[in-house]
Design a protein around this nucleic acid. Structure first.
Lengths: 224, 224
DNA sequence: ACCTGAACACCGTTCAAGT
DNA sequence: ACCTGAACACCGTTCAAGT
């Protein structure tokens, strides 16, 4: 008599599978949709099953951050100038974050808690040291640069990335209209910028100019 | 026969009083402690009373953001160079955020939804326009600069600002120890920076150098 | 106009128990 | 080792009702 399909017949849950589904939920519906109960449901398991793999929800969030940080591709250090290498490294970090804007906010506080995050920070500190910054300045600037890259993706102009295309377009129109309706005597520049503020016309240039600004700023404080 | 003290004898709740207590809770215990029920309790009122003043919790958070934005002091535009004026304006924004680091994260998405936020954005756009940026570039850079200021306060090195002094010190020690225990062959710069990364030695210089970096970066992309 | 009481559908988490 | 069932203390929110 064949047993009906049940939990013990399935491939067992793993930390990795749980984190994977959590990221998928965040990508499609936002971080607030990532609940213990929802992640459990998506794995055909009761909520309490997750507590075998994670002591508490915070550890699941740690796992998400670590997984995204692990996707950073850091090429071997080359003979470039420090500022070009810094640009490249920050871009490598950004490229890992962009596919998962909804979880980016988890990362800032966790960089120094994970192996791949430590490697990223070590690399940036090294480049700033090459540039001639003191240990204290390098520490301050590196932690700021990495946070700023995260901000770049969480603060991309336009509605949140989680929305369906139709909702997205509707929100863009609404935001543009709201800015366009302002008092022209008081907010002339906002009115002129309504289009550009309502959505990000060109993501690539938004991101590369953002990183460029950070690197140029780092050069600037070095000279000062 | 005297009535016992009851709800209808107290001064009535106001939007402002509610927002005020919400900010106080966030300041002392963090944003996650701000619940409808807790804010109600602190006002000696049932949770449902808040729904007379706010349609949903999101509107309370909007109110918090607006209140903090309203505390920005923007001096009248002076004859300074655009970059010095930009430094000053960003500092004005920062000064409004610093007393309330726990709610800073609410502000980024809400700047263009409130009167004082619009005034801040208009000012920054004007300065970038003076500098010679195109409308599109000014829009991109302004939204990035304002987010970056918020990041400066949410990403300040060291443990979260909500903790009691003893817990704060303990966390600093723990973080420093963790970094100090890394493999010196792989993470030499992190080990050297352990002290500086575990806490912010000098907040004032951290903040002024952060703004300096952003202004220098803006100058840099203008020349490019 | 302003607030309460009772109820609902959700959370995260614990604890004892099953295989 | 890995998972379930039942329960607890919390959420935000609705709806009808009180003054």
């Amino acid at each position: 008599m064949p047993r009906i399909a049940r939990a013990q017949d399935r491939s067992p849950l793993t930390r990795e599978r749980i984190v994977e589904t959590a990221i998928a939920i965040a990508d499609s519906e936002g971080l607030e949709a990532v609940t213990i109960r929802r992640v459990a449901t998506d794995n055909d398991v009761t909520p309490m099953a997750l507590y075998w793999h994670f002591k508490e929800k915070g550890q699941l969030l740690d796992g998400i951050a670590e997984s995204v940080l692990a996707s950073i591709v850091l090429p071997a250090a080359s003979g470039e100038s420090w500022d070009r290498a810094l640009y490249g490294t920050l871009h490598n970090f950004l490229d890992a974050l962009r596919p998962h804007p909804a979880v980016a906010e988890l990362i800032a506080m966790r960089i120094l808690e994970s192996e791949p995050g430590l490697e990223l920070a070590e690399r940036v500190l090294g480049l700033l040291s090459d540039a001639g910054f003191s240990v204290e300045q390098a520490a301050e600037i590196s932690s700021y640069l990495l946070s700023a890259i995260i901000t770049l993706v969480t603060a991309e102009p336009g509605p949140e990335r989680v929305l369906a295309q139709a909702d997205y377009d509707a929100q863009v129109r609404q935001k543009r209209a709201a800015l366009g309706a302002l008092d022209p005597a008081r907010f002339p520049h906002l009115i002129a910028s309504a289009d550009a503020l309502a959505m990000c016309a060109n993501e690539e240039s938004y991101y590369s100019r953002g990183i460029e600004l950070l690197v140029a700023g780092t050069r600037g404080v070095l000279r000062a």
